[in-house]
Every structure is written in C-alpha cells, then in structure tokens.
Design a binder for these strands. Sequence first.
DNA 1: TGGTTCTGGATATTAGATGTCCTGAATAGC
DNA 2: GCTATTCAGGACATCTAATATCCAGAACCA
Lengths: 160, 160
Amino acid sequence: MKMNEGVEWAMHSCVNLSWLPGEAVTAKRLAAFYDLPTAYLNKQLQALTRAGILSSTSGPKGGFQLARDPRNITLLDILTAIDGADDAFRCTQILKAGPGADPKADYREVCLVSQAMRAAELNYRRELAGQTIADIVTRVEAQSPAAPENTRTWFANLKS
Amino acid sequence: MKMNEGVEWAMHSCVNLSWLPGEAVTAKRLAAFYDLPTAYLNKQLQALTRAGILSSTSGPKGGFQLARDPRNITLLDILTAIDGADDAFRCTQILKAGPGADPKADYREVCLVSQAMRAAELNYRRELAGQTIADIVTRVEAQSPAAPENTRTWFANLKS
DNA sequence: TGGTTCTGGATATTAGATGTCCTGAATAGC
DNA sequence: GCTATTCAGGACATCTAATATCCAGAACCA
Ligand code: SF4
Ligand code: SF4
C-alpha cells in the first residue's frame, strides 16, 4: 500500500505557492527548491492544473500558481489529482468465482469484508477532505514564522 | 495507492476457516474455493502463520486453521501481516534537500504535511483495529444464514 | 517407507511507478 | 514576424514491487 511520491511534492509545492500569490513560478524553480526531477514534477503540476488546483501560463514569465484560495484546496483534492480516486482495497469480487455466486450481484455492496474496508477508507478520505492547504500554512507559520519570508527570498535569489 | 490483493484473500480465508473450527484445511482447498493460485495463496497463509493468526501443521491431514478466537483477530492484524506496517504516505524528508534544512531534525515529526497525512492514516488503521473477523462473520450470518453450512458442505464435497 | 503438506528461498513474469526526451502550442519581449 | 521561454502531453526507457511459479528440504501421518 504505497502512495505516489508526487503527492508529497504536490502538497509542498502548493504550500510554497501560497507564499508567492499572483506570481507564476516555473516547474524548474519549484523542482530546484527540493532538488526534484524537473520533468517529472512538471507532470504532477500538470495533473494539478487539470484538476483545477493550479493555473498555468505558457511562455516567458509563465509558470504555475494557485488557481483558487488555499482555504478551498483540500489535501484530498491533491491526493485524488495525483494518485487517482481508486480505493486502495481493490474488491476483485472473488466471490463470483466461488460457489453459490450470484453473477448479477454487485459484491462490492453485498460483501461485508468489502464494506468494512471501504468504510474505513472513506473515513480516511473524509479526514483529508477536512484539511486545507490554508490549514497547513497557518500551522507552519505558527511553528516557524520566518518560513514565508525565507521561501520568498529563496525564490527571488534563485537564478536561471 | 494500491493494497496487496492477498489482503482480501486472507480475510475471506479467515472467515471461511472460522466456519471450520478445529479442522486443518490445506492451501490447495482454500485456493480452490475462490480459484486462486495455490502457491501464491500459500505464501499469504504462511505470512498469517508467522503473524500468529493461523497455525499450520505439515504432512497428510495437515493444513491451516485459526490460531485464536476470531473475536481476537482484527482486520488490521491481517492487513499488517500481509501488506506490512509501512504507511502509504512515504515521507521522504525532502525538506532536508531544501534550503534552511536542519539535518538533525526528524521531519516526519516536525513537518505538518507529514503530520496531517500520518494522522489520517493512523485513524484508518485504528478503525480497522476495531473490526474483528468475528464481527464480519456475525454480519455475514445475519445477512445469509445458510452461508456457514454451505461453506462446510462445499469443503466436505471437494475431492482431491 | 512413501505420500502428503507446509516452509522458505530462488526465480520468472508482469504491472506500475519513476524518470527522460522530444514535438508542438502558447506567449512575452523585441 | 522572430526568437526564446515555458507549458502540454505523448512516447519512450528504466527501475521497483507485486504477482506467480518452482523446487529442495523438513515435518508428519499411515
Ligand atoms: S471483498 Fe467481498 S466483494 Fe470484494 S471480492 Fe472479496 S468477497 Fe467479493
Ligand atoms: S512530508 Fe514533511 S517531513 Fe515528509 S518529506 Fe515532505 S516536508 Fe519532509
């Protein structure tokens, strides 16, 4: 049960972008911040854009920025944009291969193992849906008040 | 974010074994029930055995059976036995590659993104820890009272 | 003793995650 | 218009982990 690494990159990139409002930041600069492979991070940023979390502009002076208020971007939004909406527990409906199976039944609904696992996972997603980028940012600033300014100057001083 | 398929096999096998108490069931028979690859299912059963969930006996008349009361086997027990105890969200501590990093800090504790993700996952595991095989069995029997007897006769009639 | 079954390591196969590259379209500045 | 920059996205290459098979050894029963 492993999650795409890009989820973590995406969350941190969103936090950083929240400290650079209205400014288009290129994928190269975002990647440089954590020393990530540019082209690959770019793919994750594209996914965030398709999901309406970021907005992008081409050309010189182009780049990515948050498409909406950080209070309106949940951790679940980012997770599903990068990692998809599929459940970790895959009900392969093996009961259909078993004896006494009813081919017409949807065992995802009927089977109680499936129900238990899906309920737990639904809860997990609900919890992530209750956490926004703004919440994270607020807590980061409470913990290290210099973080926003440090990030801004770091991006300002980055050349090339 | 995908979970090992064996988790599902293991859970269903435990349910079936709870209807065959005191009886050693071979991996081949358990696999036949859902038409699963015998050797591979056997590996999952071995893992359950190492985790103390099943007990195994070699030789003719050998096989697997539940090692303890189904009320004392949680879904989390099975998940960790098959899929390991690692979190889905892997904190690769990318902050260490970032500016202003403190190499001595454990960012899994400090970082608030990591905290949020791990808290949600902890909740997920706690929920699974609150569900036992006995709970599932009880609900299955309430839904289809014939299930235990059907399973028993199926295993009894299975030849080879 | 012989046949059955679990144990665990070695190995093969496949799918998916990770990473790179290249072409094309959009855009800003000249 | 021309050029340089950047995103968009498809095509690939690589690497890792899940899935699956096989076999030699140990345990066990009759
Ligand atoms: S979890 Fe339930 S529905 Fe899914 S395959 Fe297993 S028995 Fe069928
Ligand atoms: S989640 Fe937090 S601790 Fe983990 S790598 Fe990202 S910043 Fe570091």
